[in-house]
Write a protein that binds this DNA or RNA. Structure first.
Lengths: 178, 178
DNA sequence: GTTCACATGTAACAGGTTACATGATTGG
DNA sequence: CCAATCATGTAACCTGTTACATGTGAAC
């Protein structure tokens, strides 16, 4: 799926600036299964405008000049059409897991710290998703959000209960760890 | 993380051909958190050979000519060094979830079929991971595999129990869906 | 015999990222 | 006044994918 479709998809819910689209994709309610950078969003928006799939409204009233984009009827049609393709397989990429593979070769307690950090990140992201879900009453969005929450919870649970598999047991009391 | 590090990581466990590396990354025990195509693996292997991080052994004995790659000491060192960097955030990309967002605009029962298909895929992938885990006695790999299994199970559970959120209720008997 | 799995590689191309360049407004 | 956040955009670059090109051996 490309950034153009993604923009169309976000604009389908409400008008937005490029900046806001980026926010929604990176931190907002779509962030757990989507990603895009400014460098791809702005050009996409320009192309979409040229193709009349969105319209651009320059807003100079609110102090900061901003370009607000709004999806057109043709844009909605194009989105539905794009959605018609069989979605590609979900993909999960994790450098964290890759590093864990070699936990036994890492510096002592490196794995422990890595897990600690990851756990914190996941708890944060879980919280964020739950906040979004509370505020949200659109079925599709709740469904996607709920999925993210379920996966996050499962990941956290797993890390907590299985970290012992790769961490150095404290039961082997040694100062060698330093 | 780049394909070079990935190759090094896989070769750390045992020697392999480019073809086998691709298999391991796409269907094998690393497949749930890693991906790489032939078009990136072969050039990476050539570069690694030039840098003496792996050695190439041409095997013409087994009928099919194959190039078997083996990691060197320098290669192991380079891997450990690469592993030293803070791993980037896990990323999950899902076109499936994106499409689900617009379930209400799709053709009737499109969402149902999508979920059905995804469920089947996830069950297959779960089975595959469990088979790998059974055969595997390396702690790091078991940990990573277990993580994949946990996430898959959670995803399957979620889809089964929440699909009603976006599917058309059969309880509302109407041909209006058309 | 023909299909499938094994096996290697290249080249064109697409797609997106990073870094850069710029500037306004708000809040402390 | 200074930092953070809002805001837009470009260009060089990188990385990897797709498609192509080729060939062997095994199994049915």
């Amino acid at each position: 799926m490309n950034v153009k479709t993604l923009c169309l998809g976000i604009l389908q819910f409400s008008e937005a600036t490029g900046y806001e689209i980026k926010k929604l994709a990176s931190e907002g309610r779509f962030s757990h299964f989507i990603e895009a950078s400014f460098g791809s969003i702005y050009p996409a928006l320009t192309r979409l405008t040229r193709e009349s799939l969105v319209t651009r409204h320059e807003d100079r009233t609110t102090g900061r000049p901003r370009n607000v984009y709004r999806i057109t009827e043709a844009g909605r049609a194009a989105l539905i059409e794009a959605l018609d393709d069989t979605p590609g397989p979900d993909q999960f990429r994790s450098e964290f897991l890759f590093v864990c593979l070699y936990a036994d070769r890492l510096q002592p307690h490196r794995a422990d710290r890595l897990i600690e950090t990851r756990l914190e990140q996941m708890e944060q992201s879980l919280e964020r998703l739950m906040e979004c879900a509370e505020k949200c009453d659109h079925a599709g969005s709740r469904f996607a959000l709920g999925y993210g929450i379920a996966l996050n919870e499962a990941g956290i649970r797993y890390l907590r209960s299985h970290r012992g598999l790769i961490e150095i047991r404290p039961e082997a009391p040694l100062e060698a760890a330093e």
